[in-house]
Amino acid sequence: MSLRIRKSGILDTVQDGGRYGYQHLGINPGGAMDLLAMKIGNALVGNDAGEPVLEMHFPVAEIVFETRVLIALSGADFSATVNGDPVPILHPIIIQQGSVLQFGKNTTGARIYLAVAGGYTTSEWLSSSSTHKQVKAGGFEGRALQKNDILFLKKIKTNQVLSMDKPFVVFPWGAKVSDLYVDNPFRFIPGAEYFCLTETSKQQLKSGVFTIDQQSDRMGYRLRGEGIALESCQELISSAVTKGTIQLLPDGQLIILMADHQTTGGYPRVGHVISADFASLAQLRAGETFSLQKTDIPTAENLLIEQQRNLQQLQNACNFRLEEYLKSYQ
């Protein structure tokens, strides 16, 4: 009941919904960058939405399945293959014992998620399995997966994974996610220092094009664009920041705080990317461009509720189809 890493990837970690309740101790929440993908992947294999998944970046590890298991890939598309044959994202797939999962190229998106039916055996730290690399805790030994690591799977209650003689079987149905993700522009609500921006900078924020810099990671996306300036520039006292906070750095460039952000910050908060658009933003890669569009809290809340409703429908549909599938084999 395990997966083995045959070749290391650049950054493959165990993540869940995040470690909340400890930010007053400087412990950042972490968690999957694209929470939608985590939930979709789990839905496709019949798991609870918050079951820990593998979050993987390109180039990705090569994974040997040492047991037959039901899996799903979600989020980015890295041209996955099983024993050399292409397999799609967003479909449940039964993988035969001994089969090898590989990834060919970074087709779309920044991070792909691997969910397995029943879930992985992970270590929890402060009620979360998200990997905290600084503290070296949570997930798989608190670190990214490396060559020869063996990731054990939890025992599955029902015999969900039926025997077969092929290296893999892709289910004919999958998840439609077009109404969950958004395209450019991403929406933001103004931050506390938005009103200190010069008129030109406010315009630049709303209509400018921003490029994601190479120096971007799970902590933050550094942006490159025309410089942004404040009308008056008094030094701020540090206070808490959140996922999606857009800070103005002293050089006039912006940084958007991502899942592994620091808990506090002292740079001007010009805006905050709304929760409903965060997963889509988290799938942008270095070098890609986007724009920002100003919105307000009522709109942001409604968009998130609507997204949650669509996700719930998708989860229900997956449950229904998985049950149907199991029945058909009984």
Binding site: Y20, Q23, H24, I237, S238, S239, T263, L304, I305, Q308
Partner: peptide
């Protein structure tokens, strides 16, 4: 409420909108 974060002169409350 998911997190309460005190700083120098602020307390920030992170909450679950859904």
């Amino acid at each position: 409420v998911k997190d309460i974060i005190p700083a120098y002169h602020t307390v920030t409350i992170v909450y679950d909108v859904v």
